[in-house]
């Protein structure tokens, strides 16, 4: 774990792009945690006298068609980005890890479970999320759940692959032959070794969750429209793209750079990961 983190910071020094990614993530986190301190205006404050004002000294990122301050809305949008990311990653890990581990340890049950995962994977990801939104209804927690189910599948597959590999390793076999219980083996040998592959997977899922949530927002099926999420801001900016292109630029940039930073982090983590697991991670082929 510490070795992995050291690896990432080491990579950050050697690779300026990774340093940029980590720095940008810090900015997003600070935006989210301290939005009221950073945002100069309320994200919901309507100012009918200052509609569609281009970026200037008072409104750094300009204003929208209600006169709301875009910079303040971008800052508050970070809260939602973080919430969605943490929610989706949390859900994917809390469901995917047990499914993967159990499937690898109990092959008979595993066949059924992984078959179920295969069936879910037969649905293109956005369509699966849309179908779940129809069943669950629109809303932040439902968006998290819908996107979470999509990444439950990939997480379970990776955990399954890694656990199978670990199970074959001599020390796990040795522990088992000496009479170690399954739970003990999982806690002592399997889970600790899974931390670095899971960190990599978590950063990628976090990135995909941003893009997925933005798509749902854009289609009007994600975060309720009164909440300032970056996706909602983009959806609203559509009507004004020629008159107020800044409305398009800033939230889109935030989504792209957040996802980019997370992908960079995931890549740096993967480069420093145990080569035994790289194959299980990088393999998107379904066989």
């Amino acid at each position: 774990m510490t070795a992995t983190l050291q690896g990432v910071f080491g990579a950050a020094i050697r690779r300026p792009l990774t340093a940029f990614g980590l720095l940008f993530l810090v900015v997003v986190i600070v935006f989210a945690l301290a939005s009221p301190l950073i945002a100069p205006y309320s994200p919901l404050e309507i100012d009918s006298l200052n509609r569609l004002v281009p970026p200037n000294a008072e409104h750094w990122f300009g204003t929208d068609h209600f006169g709301r301050d875009t910079f303040s809305r971008v800052v508050y949008g970070a809260r939602l980005a973080l919430l969605i990311g943490i929610g989706v990653v949390g859900f994917a890990l809390m469901t995917g890890v047990p499914i993967g581990v159990v499937s690898a340890l109990y092959p008979r049950l595993g066949r059924v479970l992984m078959r179920g995962v295969d069936v879910l994977m037969a649905f293109p990801s956005l369509l699966l999320a849309l179908g779940l939104i129809v069943i669950l209804g629109r809303g932040v927690s439902n968006a998290i759940l819908a996107i979470g189910v999509v990444y439950l599948t990939t997480t379970a597959r990776i955990v399954y692959g890694v656990t199978l590999r670990l199970r074959e390793e001599t020390y796990v076999e040795a522990a088992q032959s000496m009479g170690a219980g399954t739970l003990w083996t999982v806690r002592k040998h399997i889970l600790p070794n899974m931390i670095s592959p899971l960190l990599v997977q978590a950063s990628f899922v976090f990135a995909f969750a941003q893009l997925g949530a933005a798509s749902l927002d854009f289609l009007g099926l994600g975060t309720p429209p009164d909440i300032p999420s970056w996706g909602n801001m983009l959806a609203e900016s559509r009507l004004y793209i020629t008159r107020a292109p800044w409305l398009l630029f800033f939230p889109g940039m935030m989504i792209a750079l957040t996802a980019f930073s997370l992908n960079l982090t995931g890549d740096a983590l993967r480069d420093h990961m145990d080569p035994r697991f790289r194959e299980a991670m990088g393999n998107r082929k379904r066989t």
Binding site: A207, L211, F218, L234, G252, A256, F260
Partner: peptide
Amino acid sequence: LASIPTFW
């Protein structure tokens, strides 16, 4: 480019 939303 892989991180940019298609609709953007």
